[in-house]
Design a protein around this nucleic acid. Sequence first.
DNA 1: ATGGCTCTGAAATTAATTTGACAGAGTTTT
DNA 2: AAAACTCTGTCAAATTAATTTCAGAGCCAT
Lengths: 290, 290
Amino acid sequence: MPKPSMTVRELIRAQYESLTQSERKFANSLLENYPAAGLASITIVAANAEVSTPTVARMVQKLGFKGYPQFHQALLKELEAKVSGPNRRRDNWATEAPDGHMLNRFAKSVTQNIEQTFANIDMTQFDAAVRQLGKADSRLYMVGGRITRALADYAFTHFQVVRPRVTHMTSSSATWPHYVLDMEPGDTLLLFDVRRYETNLQRLAEQANERGITVILITDQWSSPIAKVATYTFHCWIEIPSGWDSNITTMMMLEALIAATQEENWPETRARYDRLDSLFDTTFLFKKFP
Amino acid sequence: MPKPSMTVRELIRAQYESLTQSERKFANSLLENYPAAGLASITIVAANAEVSTPTVARMVQKLGFKGYPQFHQALLKELEAKVSGPNRRRDNWATEAPDGHMLNRFAKSVTQNIEQTFANIDMTQFDAAVRQLGKADSRLYMVGGRITRALADYAFTHFQVVRPRVTHMTSSSATWPHYVLDMEPGDTLLLFDVRRYETNLQRLAEQANERGITVILITDQWSSPIAKVATYTFHCWIEIPSGWDSNITTMMMLEALIAATQEENWPETRARYDRLDSLFDTTFLFKKFP
DNA sequence: ATGGCTCTGAAATTAATTTGACAGAGTTTT
DNA sequence: AAAACTCTGTCAAATTAATTTCAGAGCCAT
């Protein structure tokens, strides 16, 4: 009998470290669909998580329950309490967080931002941009501003895996002309510019545009002036309740582009993935994960 | 199998007339404490209503269920549906995108990941971590791995605005010992480690931990081994339909921490914001935005 | 009153769930 | 490379739950 004040979810979280591989498999299955995935009989529950029944039985004992039935009861009680409880308010994301807590306000705006951003993607533009990003025979440059530099970096790390000829233009704008010098028609420039918009970036975009480079711009809902010269523009909703802007949707936009590009170029990129993987295997830098 | 659209409560009401005396006894017991009084095994449920098990069995069959287990399941489903609220599940996010389009598949997993991640944040840990991150009198170090380096960079840019004494440990792990040398008890190390977990990071975390540094770890749902030595650990769900992992939730976690820290230290940080703003104004690097 | 009727719960039967023992696979240590 | 160890699933025994059977209780009409 574990502490009665703790939810099963908390119990799992607290003991997650001491769980074995298969036990985690079940734990994840439960957490992903909580608590529904734990309400059936042990046989069904185990089958859904693709582990054996003894694994589940052992784990619930590890969590402190006398047996599966106790565990089952505990889940039911929780569920019941939640329904009859005073504040079964759905906008409470972090189940335990109080209404006014930063986490909940934050979660709310993030969700809204994501919905807005997705709803405003122009499919034609998206698909065209993806095709452009996948053109492995030309160069792909990327650059960001003060804040979005990190995103350009992230983009670089991933596109480098997806395709060859990728360049991250470092943040020192003094060096940008050198890059422009080497750009050729057909090349691509992936550009991040959110408020406050940076004049350096705008000049860079204009120069690139004059040289016949395809400019893909990821900006915010208010649109950077660069949009005027960009071939494709994607707007991201970035307002959150704080003094600065969130870049979750910006990164989401970026990841969506990467994912689509990767899918488009499959299986060429697959070969690159595999090669990279075997390189990692020989460097011992990384741990194998289950 | 009764009409799936009907709740058990409605079923009972509809057939109440045709129920016998003992059956009504059970029905009332259930309706009085609905649905809790129907969630246990038939034996217990019957005992609570002070009727025999056959009575219950007969009645649920009369209601249209094949047997008690079916009835039980139906109650659970109802309860579950109630908790998860009005299913506002959007199948198509990008309004124009067809069902199978990458964007929609992507949006779906991202949403799930976000929900998962939020639901699994331990409030106590979160608040404590925020307090630690806001301790302006000690140093705050941050570091990431191959992929998460960009996130550490992003974290640096923002925390630098929020508070003084912030250091981004550059990606070359050869230089890390030098940083450790300068770390002092009370300092904080914000660490990103998602799969594939990096051994260098683990060694760094262990050393920091030995020196009495508070280690805040942001990792994935499978948990980096660093969690063993970390003071606070936050798990992010990062799986998307692609060969690599999404870091949207990782960034979200980070932003949430930043936002909370900023709120915690208001108005000290406000002064820094204002100062930064006037600095920008004098450099002409940035455009004014509306 | 008594035969016919329905309803009820004890007990027996049947089905299912849960747990413990064990052996093989995989991993780490010596 | 061998040994020790840990983990995992198969299987069978034990426990528990659900269903069926059936005898008796209550009720009503004759």
